[in-house]
């Protein structure tokens, strides 16, 4: 496991520079999708009026809130352009800085942990020595990206283990009740939503959508399985023998997350899965 060597050598271990270049592209795509999503479903007019605007005034005061509203649309456009440049590998570090600024700006009107996560992941790009140019990937062993790559591994591991820890502390989640309730009411409400977001196959609803004790029992097993996978993933990704299975399990788990909460988790899921490349030296 290269990252233990990285620690003992104070980040002078050699790693393949291509890893961070692939990660840059993956994270760029994740940010592009997140930013496009924020423009759709009425996002362009989000701060014009309504509760979000009211909440903004309450938290920041009217003059600061007015500044946030004035910057809102330009920031949405600029950060999307920056994410596209980041993906394409044009002025990558400058683009990453704008992406981070755009993500931090979002925290002013909506705080989400996955926005903080994407900002941290993008921050790893700032300390990388070689992010590559364009879509061309250079395979060269050096210590230019070692620290940045180590930080990506650290953050992905923290996300999984912290998530597992939080879940085990929640009686609501551990009992299966949370997921049973969530799927049940979402299935009921999905047709009433003004924008189409969810699609639950009939077989899935028959097994998991009942909102009753049987569905809860089934979701309890799923809830435990998710915790086991989250704990095991960073370890399994680190070991060459188990890595392919870990990648398959991780992608499957994130695909399942997307089924439950597509809008909010698309960027997060792609960003996390992109981080898998950093587990290889």
């Amino acid at each position: 496991m290269w990252f233990f060597d990285a620690v003992t050598s104070v980040f002078t271990t050699y790693t393949d520079e291509a890893r961070m270049q692939y990660f840059r592209m993956g994270l760029g795509v994740a940010c592009v999708l997140k930013f496009v999503m924020s423009l759709t479903h009425g996002g362009w007019n989000r701060l014009a009026s309504g509760f979000t605007r009211h909440d903004l005034d309450r938290r920041h005061g009217s003059s600061r809130a007015a500044w946030v509203v004035a910057c809102y649309r330009p920031v949405l456009c600029v950060r999307l352009a920056a994410a596209l440049l980041l993906t394409a590998g044009v002025a990558s570090k400058a683009a990453a800085m704008v992406v981070i600024a755009g993500l931090l700006f979002e925290l002013m009107y909506e705080f989400r942990s996955n926005t903080v996560f994407l900002a941290l992941m993008a921050g790893c790009l700032l300390v990388a020595g070689n992010l590559g140019d364009g879509l061309h990937v250079v395979h060269r062993m050096s210590d230019a990206n070692t620290w940045a790559q180590f930080l990506v591994v650290l953050i992905v591991t923290d996300v999984y283990w912290n998530s597992a820890w939080q879940k085990t502390r929640s009686a609501h989640y551990m009992s299966g009740l949370l997921l049973a309730q969530y799927v049940h009411f979402t299935a009921q409400a999905q047709r009433k939503l003004p924008f189409r977001e969810f699609y639950y196959p009939r077989l899935f609803l028959r097994w998991f959508g009942g909102g009753d004790a049987i569905a809860m029992q089934r979701w309890r097993k799923v809830a435990l399985l998710v915790i086991v996978v989250e704990v095991a993933l960073p370890i399994a990704l680190s070991l060459p023998a188990t890595r392919p299975y870990a990648i398959a399990a991780g992608i499957s788990m994130h695909a399942a997350f997307l089924l439950l909460l597509p809008r909010q988790l698309l960027g997060f899921s792609l960003g996390t899965v992109s981080g898998y490349v950093a587990f290889v030296a």
Partner: peptide
Amino acid sequence: QPVRGRLFCWAMFTRG
């Protein structure tokens, strides 16, 4: 980090 609860609520949202 405290474990926070979350209610489930969907809104029929139209502008204004």
